[in-house]
């Protein structure tokens, strides 16, 4: 007959295979979810716009952000990391992406909200190219699962036109 070790071995193997299959299925089912995110952002006020001592432009602002991320959530969603990035091109750089604000949503019940916040991270350029610059505000989200594949997506929201001269003395 089968020894205790053999039985334990069979049990552990089957448990591991079943768990792996469940995780794969949960992650696979996520790909059938096609979320439609609604979001809106506006710049309430530019609080600071100056050239830092090291020569880089710095902008701090207050933002009005509203979004509805409910459709992202599935039964395999652990949390959604959402952030607003400033994206623009300069003479030297083909792409600059600077995160301005981020937030972690863990429950579907809290996935629809509106906030008025100061930028969590200042917009700091590599150099001083921001005067009169048109900057894209793009909402990115990163869906982190309970197990399986992580999903990233984004949506351009609006533009921010910075003034032609600094508003704060450095």
């Amino acid at each position: 007959m089968h020894s205790a070790v053999q039985r334990a071995n069979a049990l552990v193997t089957i448990a591991a295979i079943l768990l792996a299959a469940l995780c794969t299925a949960a992650s696979f089912l996520d790909s059938f979810n096609s979320p439609s995110v609604q979001a809106h952002v506006e710049v309430v006020k530019i609080n600071r716009f100056k050239r830092q001592l090291d020569g880089n432009d710095e902008v701090k602002m207050t933002l009005n952000i509203s979004m509805n991320l409910e459709s992202i959530f599935t039964w395999n969603t652990k949390q959604v990391f959402v952030f607003l990035a400033a994206e623009y091109e300069t003479e030297k750089n083909s792409l600059n992406q600077v995160s301005l604000w981020d937030h972690i949503v863990q429950e579907k019940e809290r996935a629809s909200f509106r906030v008025k916040v100061p930028t969590k991270y200042p917009l700091i350029d590599q150099g001083s190219n921001l005067r009169g610059k048109k900057i894209g505000l793009v909402l990115h989200w990163h869906v982190m699962p309970k197990s399986g594949r992580m999903i990233r997506d984004k949506m351009p929201l609006s533009y921010l036109s910075l003034p032609n001269s600094y508003t704060t003395k450095s």
Binding site: F81, F83, A85, E91, K92, N93, S94, L95, N96, Q97, V98, S99, D102, Y121, Q126, H140, W141, H142, M150, R152, K154
Partner: peptide, 27 residues
């Protein structure tokens, strides 16, 4: 930006797993 990367810093042997919050790509 937004991606989670694993990076090694010179002089440290344990890799770090963190999120990218800024990207500047040279033209």
């Amino acid at each position: 930006a937004g991606e989670i990367v694993v990076y090694n810093v010179d002089g440290r042997d344990i890799p770090i797993v963190h999120r990218v919050i800024k990207v500047h790509e040279r033209k």
